[in-house]
Design a protein around this nucleic acid. Sequence first.
RNA 1: GACCUCGUGGCUCAAUUGGAUAGAGCAGCCCCCUCCUAAGGGGCAGGUUGCAGGUUCAAGUCCUGCCGGGGUCACCA
Length: 576
Amino acid sequence: MNLFADIRALVVESLTALADEGALPRGLETQGVAVEPPRDAGHGDMATNAAMVLAKPAGMPPRAIADLLAKKLIDDGRVLSAEVAGPGFLNLRLAPSVWQGLVGAVLADGTDYGRSAMGKGVKVNVEYVSANPTGPLHVGHTRGAVFGDALASLLAFAGYDVTREYYINDGGAQVDVLARSVYMRYQEAHDLSVDWPEGSYPGDYLIPVGEALKDKVGDAYLEEPESVWLAPVREFATDAMMDLIRSDLAALGVKMDVFYSEKSLYGTGRIEAALEALKERGLIYRGTLEPPKGKTPEDWEPREQVLFRSTAHGDDVDRPVMKSDGAWTYFAPDIAYHYDKISRGFDALIDVFGADHGGYVKRMKAAVSALSDGRVPVDIKLCQLVRLFKNGEPFKMSKRAGNFVTLRDVVEQVGPDVTRFVMLTRKNDAPLDFDFDKVLEQSRENPVFYVQYANARIMSVIRKAEEAGIDASAAPDLSLLTHEAEMKVAKQLAEWPRLVEIAARTNEPHRVAFYLNELAGDFHALWNRGNDDASLRFVQDDVRASQAKLALARAVSVVISAGLAILGVKPAQEMR
RNA sequence: GACCUCGUGGCUCAAUUGGAUAGAGCAGCCCCCUCCUAAGGGGCAGGUUGCAGGUUCAAGUCCUGCCGGGGUCACCA
């Protein structure tokens, strides 16, 4: 059930009929015809731009087309009125029975209401978090985790075949640093005192890992040189860190389908194969890069490197894939990783990065474009910083001391539901303020509360009704829903399927959170109308009237539940 | 210097990817509880969408150039 799609289909049918009658030219392209809610509800229930879009190709003034279309549409039982307005908009008012029927459809579909087929048959890969396995996840990762997870759920709801994936950066130098840091904790576990060099990971979270290493190997590595213990300790340490990260993600309710190891690309010829694929396209060469204009690094010296001609696919400069010592740059395995995603048959890729990786976007897009010969689109979503506050005061993190606010800190303090919802109350590319106190506040300002409160009120009023002996789930006579305040809520429900498609098309899950806030607002408004007008209360002496009103409330709850499910939040049954 | 990103009432943000008279919430002023959760709601006031051009039936949205905030900038990942 998608009312906007239904009415759009009606508009297109009517246009075809007009063409058959000779009133319009045949074969007009109706691609651009849209049926949308008008910006101002006073204009009507729905508006179509059909006349304006078709005016030029039809060679007719828009208002003339709109007049023809209006006369045709009015024949349909669902359309109460069709008025031409402005430059050629056609404003439609729909019969009450349409909105009543919509409420019934929502209840019939349940939380499947709003599912779309737009992604049918399309395989999409969403890569998110992808934090280095060198420590627990912190707040910044939390935003990316929530965003990616909600986006994946949203796309699944829109019909896509979604894979959630985490790229483990376990191939670079930082995991060696991790291994050395764990080794020092291991030494400490043997009561040896150690000096912590600059650039190591001094966080307490490695103490138990050092202990665990001691439990596993005893004193076997104590007298050995690094060449002996580095590789096994590295593996031990990264495994421990991934366990930690997995449990952090689980605490937040994030479950990946695939954890993909960077290290697994080395020594298997996969990086070489990916670069060979680029080479075949003439995009690999040896050369020397110009220093960046304006700001030349202190230690700049011309160097001949192996370069990827990313400029052929929209990048600003070509990018090195191999260091001067012959080792791969970070970019090389990432190229291979994306090549692997392409060869696994994904039709679209989405990468969720932190905003500090913005400079990486063009080269990654260039690589995917080159490797898929332009067939596979990749959308890279950047998540901006999270600024922490406590009661309005900025909350400082000291990364140097290893004391940063972790994902687990946040989840333990405010819970996974609040964490997730709040992380989606801003669009991904805008900075987000997270105040530990305000997110728990029970007030209008807090959207988490506001939406949950709406659902709790619905649950509460259903309980009240049942206590009064009303069967709230009985088949209602929806024709009893006639008041404009009730219609307003029904109209908001009608927008849900449309919103899902827009949010999925733009890869913007925050739109779901904003929509829920609006829906909750409409519901609270209706609720309060009951203070002034007793006929708008949900529990009525007239059982049939009550059942109809409760059906509307239940439909609201259904959509809130479906929306919250996309965000990964459990609807509240009551407020405490 | 180059690239990315953002710029919308006093504050925090939306705006149906190009649609009509730019919408919400805070803060301010005025109202609404013998009544299902007032943990809420209704109303008033508040704007040249950073600036200047351009594209077209139509621009907060697209293009160009400025201004301002943030981010990034070859042997880090």
